[in-house]
């Protein structure tokens, strides 16, 4: 794999990560889960632009809080097509052509919003939800990879470094988990812990550590007899210190490779689970969840509703795979 695809995917992932961290600052819909519903403008196509009357922003949540979770009490908005003012009241016509009278003091602000990716069947902004979907996918992938790395590195390094019965027990355990089809194991763990975001990354992390453990064990075995590791023994370093300070820093490359491919798998599993209704629960906008809500519209000519989330999943997974392959070539990892 040459460098252009590697750099494209690397920059794409960095951009997605920045987008994910500052999601609520960037997206137009700042309410929690981007769940600002306006059924009168449901299913509008790309680039639809409309006007709103907006309540005064009395949101009490602090900046740090809403950057993480969105605004719990985001200002109410009323959509209108045309309006006229009559003794301190707005008389508006909305997109469904219904007349409404609104108090001007309560809704003093005007705002226009462009729905770049259209609206879904509840009239929510698809773009905002897509960005939050990326955020959830990356977040779950990150947590799952973190869990799998933690367990996998600890067990794999111990198995490789100490050998003997420790090695046998760990490899035995790895074989047991290895023999259960991944999705099956994830299903069972999710059902045991209850549906929700945290149970997905725990489930995925608990199934993926075996790859990490196998790889780390192999790598530790291959460098265990190098002179610098033997030197630590003659210097009477404790084995914990040797593992953490001298062995692990030398196998970071291969671990990164398996982390990248695990990231891709975690995103796919999360999307699949959410698609089947076992994953992230609505109204939280996961990519798989959005596909599940919108795939029906592929028939009615609004295929873009279901296209963008799927495209996003594909791009994320593809980027991680390319990253992994490139790193594998670079660190010359034979077997993962």
């Amino acid at each position: 794999m040459n460098s252009w695809s590697y750099y494209i995917s690397l920059y794409f992932l960095i951009a997605c990560a920045i987008l994910a961290v500052f999601a609520y600052v960037i997206i137009p819909d700042k309410s929690k889960n981007a769940n600002d519903q306006h059924t009168e403008i449901a299913l509008r196509s790309l680039g639809y632009e409309t006007q709103f009357l907006v309540e005064e922003d009395k949101s009490s949540s602090s900046f740090l809080k809403w950057i993480l979770n969105g605004k719990y009490d985001s200002p109410l908005r009323i959509q209108y097509d045309d309006k006229r003012s009559e003794d301190n009241q707005w008389i508006i016509n909305n997109a469904m052509n219904r007349q409404r009278i609104v108090d001007q003091n309560r809704y003093p602000n005007l705002e226009s919003q462009t729905y770049w990716l259209g609206t879904d069947r509840f009239g929510r902004d698809q773009l905002s939800r897509l960005v939050l979907g990326i955020r959830i996918s990356l977040g779950i992938g990150f947590m799952a990879v973190l869990i799998s790395l933690f367990i996998g590195i600890a067990l794999g390094a111990m198995a490789g470094f100490y050998g003997g019965w420790m090695d046998r027990i760990v490899m035995y355990f790895v074989n047991v988990v290895w023999s259960i089809p991944t999705l099956l194991l994830v299903f069972v763990v999710v059902l045991a812990l209850g549906r929700g975001m945290s149970s997905i990354f725990i489930a995925v992390g608990l199934t993926m550590w075996v790859d990490v453990a196998r790889l780390v064990r192999g790598q530790v075995l291959s460098i265990k007899n190098n002179t610098y590791v033997r030197a630590t023994r003659s210097l009477a370093y404790s084995s914990t210190r040797t593992i953490i300070r001298h062995v692990l820093p030398n196998i970071v490359g291969p671990v990164l490779v398996v982390a990248a491919s695990n990231f891709a798998i975690a995103i796919l599993i999360e999307a699949g689970l959410s698609y089947l209704g076992f994953g992230v629960q609505p109204p939280a906008p996961s990519l798989g969840n959005m596909l599940n809500e919108n795939y029906g519209y592929a028939i009615s000519g609004k295929i873009y509703l279901a296209l963008f989330p799927a495209l996003m999943i594909m791009l994320l997974v593809l980027s991680f795979n390319i990253l992994g392959t490139h790193l594998r070539d670079r660190f010359d990892v034979k077997k993962v």
Binding site: M1, S5, A264, L268, A271, G272, Y275, L276, G288, L291, Y295, A298, I299, I303, A306, A310, I313, M314, L315, V317, L318, N321, I322, T325
Partner: peptide, 21 residues
């Protein structure tokens, strides 16, 4: 390789739904 990885990245459920449609 890039093309193959692209195909490998298509979620099965999405491909299945698209084919149905």
């Amino acid at each position: 390789s890039t093309f193959l990885y692209g195909i490998h990245s298509i979620p099965v459920f999405w491909l299945a739904t698209l084919l149905v449609v």
